[in-house]
Amino acid sequence: MKKLMKGNDAVIHGALLGGCTHFFGYPITPASEIAHSAAYYFTKSGRTFLQAESEIAAINMILGSASAGARVMTSSSSPGVALMSECVSYIAGSNVPAVIIDVQRVGPGLGYIWPEQSDYNMVLKGGGHGVYRNIVFAPNSVQEMADFTYKAFEIADKYRMCVFILADAYIGQMMEPVSFPTKILHAKRKDWALYADEQSRHNLVTSLFMEREILSANIDSLLNKYAKVEKEITEFEETSVSDAEHIFIAFGISSRVALTAVRELRKQGIKVGLFRPKTLFPFPNKRLAELASKVKSMMVVELNDGMMANDVELAVKSKLPVRKFNWYGGYVPSVTELVEKTKKSI
């Protein structure tokens, strides 16, 4: 039976079913319900919930707990994720799995608690220092908040990477009916992790490599891993794309607005479709390149100044116009606005 739940609450159900046993976090609007829900369910089920003294401490507890073999997570919103960025780089450099939920809010600075999608560059292009990537899922529904979190731990363990669930204030705060898997997943023993036993005694979790050859070899191996990730887990969804002349490209809450706009424009006889990346890294470059020769233009709808549009442009290599439809400052456009803007552009 489906339950009507907030995106932020569904995350914790998904996490516990996905085998997560440890939650370390720090409250922040609009992500706090995740911590509230974790405090209740992790504690009640004999898992570990700890409210850390800061986002910095929380993410370092993640590093420790994950290095000790556990499936671990934290949640935060944009300014909190920025604070975590240092350790996210360590997590990447040390090949440690972790899951982070980012319920994006408006920046820069304190901004405000309304939705924005402007953590795109921070989460996808670094944030922390060094050559590294995070796997990034972009849910656009409460169901996907649950589903992506459920599978995030398996993926994180498989690739020994940080998996981000990049949501936004609306996806976190809204309620929708959601169903859950009844199979609970569990972490398996990891041959690299520290278990405080004889078998794992020689293990070392580090991102420090003091010889140039070993250091560059570590980065090579990261890059090879990222290439494998690109081959294996890219996900996207297409709506009314097969006969479309123009397509929206959007993720998260913007894709929901774009979906309604597609229906509205089609009613008016305008052939538009929607292409929605479900993973932002890996980014569906290949499919976008194919679509570039099939449609007349792409319209990237995002709540920032065109961060994903830059990636779309790289993917389609100037074969067609890529239009940036941007809103920011906590503003989610109405369908009417998007429809009007589209009609003017094409």
Binding site: G64, S65, A66, S67, C87, A196, N203, S207
Partner: peptide
């Protein structure tokens, strides 16, 4: 040290250690 080893970000060792200690009850 011929023991388990973990390298931590600057100043964060007590937080990293907390994560380990809260995960492995019999660890030192």
């Amino acid at each position: 040290f011929d023991t388990g080893n973990m390298q931590c970000p600057h100043g964060r060792a007590p937080a990293v250690a907390t994560g380990i200690s809260r995960t492995l009850d019999d660890s030192i």
